[in-house]
Design a protein around this nucleic acid. Sequence first.
DNA 1: GCCGATCTTGTAGCGTCACTACATGGATGC
DNA 2: GCATCCATGTAGTGACGCTACAAGATCGGC
Lengths: 308, 308
Amino acid sequence: MDARSLEVLRTVGSQGGVTAAARTLHLTPSAVSQQVAVLQREVGVVLTERIGRGLRLTPAGEALAEAAVDVSVALERARAACDAFLEKPTGTVRVSSFQSGAQLLLPGLLTRVAALDGITLEAVDEDVAQEDFLALTDRIDIVVAHRPDPSPPWTPRSGAAAVRVVPLLREPLDVAVPVGHPFADREAVRPADLVDVPWIAVREGFPVATVLGEVAGRSGTAPRIVHRINDFHVIEALVAAGHGVSLLPRHTFGGSTRVRLVPLAEVRAGRRVDALLRADRAERLVVRRVLDELRAEAAGIGGPMPDD
Amino acid sequence: MDARSLEVLRTVGSQGGVTAAARTLHLTPSAVSQQVAVLQREVGVVLTERIGRGLRLTPAGEALAEAAVDVSVALERARAACDAFLEKPTGTVRVSSFQSGAQLLLPGLLTRVAALDGITLEAVDEDVAQEDFLALTDRIDIVVAHRPDPSPPWTPRSGAAAVRVVPLLREPLDVAVPVGHPFADREAVRPADLVDVPWIAVREGFPVATVLGEVAGRSGTAPRIVHRINDFHVIEALVAAGHGVSLLPRHTFGGSTRVRLVPLAEVRAGRRVDALLRADRAERLVVRRVLDELRAEAAGIGGPMPDD
DNA sequence: GCCGATCTTGTAGCGTCACTACATGGATGC
DNA sequence: GCATCCATGTAGTGACGCTACAAGATCGGC
């Protein structure tokens, strides 16, 4: 029973398969399969079961994976205990963010971290579907993720307490319309005003996709979606050119002079931006340090965080 | 940073040296030294320092060893999480005890455990000096140890919370005198009565050695020790033959018809019998099960345990 | 003060274990 | 029913940890 084997099992659980686990662990599927097999023989309990052509953890496997979290945490805490005897926290931290979050937070974060000296920060932009954010934590230390504001909290595929959620900021979603549009100079628009307008939405399954449905739902009709674009800047350009209206996050707005953001009335539309990190990663001193800076940076932008 | 490496470091700390650690880990000193060296290189902090021709942990090493406990605990807890899915706790548990404790507790414990079915119990009798009991926990699951009743609690050489102490029973120490001795039919004897009597004591440094000094101290004189014998049955035989008097535990008394046990008055003389086990071992289900039986067995003998 | 004993720490050699590459058996979906 | 994807076996290879041996260091005894 090795800490590494447990880590492998846990990854199979969180990534939902041998192949996916192999990818994030930089191994071949064969190696992963063997590790799990050895572990299974050792504990004498069936840990995985085939589901279709895939694989998932049995209740025993879940329990073991859950316990594996504490092992990783204890290991990282041990490492941190030593780091405390070094003068400065040193090391490299991998941070990922969806694009608009990166645009909002990364420049300031990088400046702050550069001032700390000794910490190298590897930033990656990752645009993934809502349900895939948690899985990113297996290969990235701090995952900046977003979800619609009124929405159920992050629920991992496996291992309940494995991932920690640190709220960063809440950002309202406004209606983006071109200059000259009937709404452009309004104080606010109500859902009832938006019946049958041509929407530019994000792709299905992506973070704020559900918000549009809810806004439209208030007026009792389905939204008329004419385009599905993930990049907010592209959306902004399309709106500016009069190809439709859209919901855009207020603070990330590019500032096009040909687009106006009009607040929504009667409905609470927004997105929450959270930092997701595995419990073991959260024990690393450098990670904590970077996370502190990230929170400070977010606090300077979004104002105080409301409780969920 | 491996769980095994941490275990090695921890053993070096608790055993107080590379060679001793190598013995308990069934390794060569060279292997232990290399492991520590690798670990040290990895964390970048000095973990050990030479003290004479020996070795001890630096504060950083202590901190890491302390953290290593949690790693072992988490690992064993993971194993236990799987065992919970098996029908019965199965496995082998190593128990050691000093001789008189073994005589008192082992027969009943073995009977109890045999009734559980599936647990094999390896019993060892270990007569070690007071300060060496704790080190036994590195190679034995449950160490039955004893110490003078009013005495400071067990303090490990390294790693404060690494060893758990489970009180089993308290046993009074009585004055053993031969039949026909002036004290033989007394209700009790006072320290003042015992000035200048010829004592048979245990060897220096062994568990109840200090009690005699304290009893004698009450009368203001040093005890006159004529023999140093560790085996209580040998002591009993010597007392029976009139070669001196001794302090013997009441419940372990062999029952020689030529020896009387007379209680001590005015002074609280006794020994505490404790079970010592490492925190990680305590997580194993089989170990817990055996420990439960041991406590039950002890409760049947010593009556309720007083708080220290 | 020298010598043996004891303890730690290097170096060479060896065995084991985990990984990769490749092949096989199932299950899915167009 | 064929192509695809996934998990899992099997041989081969490389790396890592161990043992055996030797060297440097320190303490106790005569």
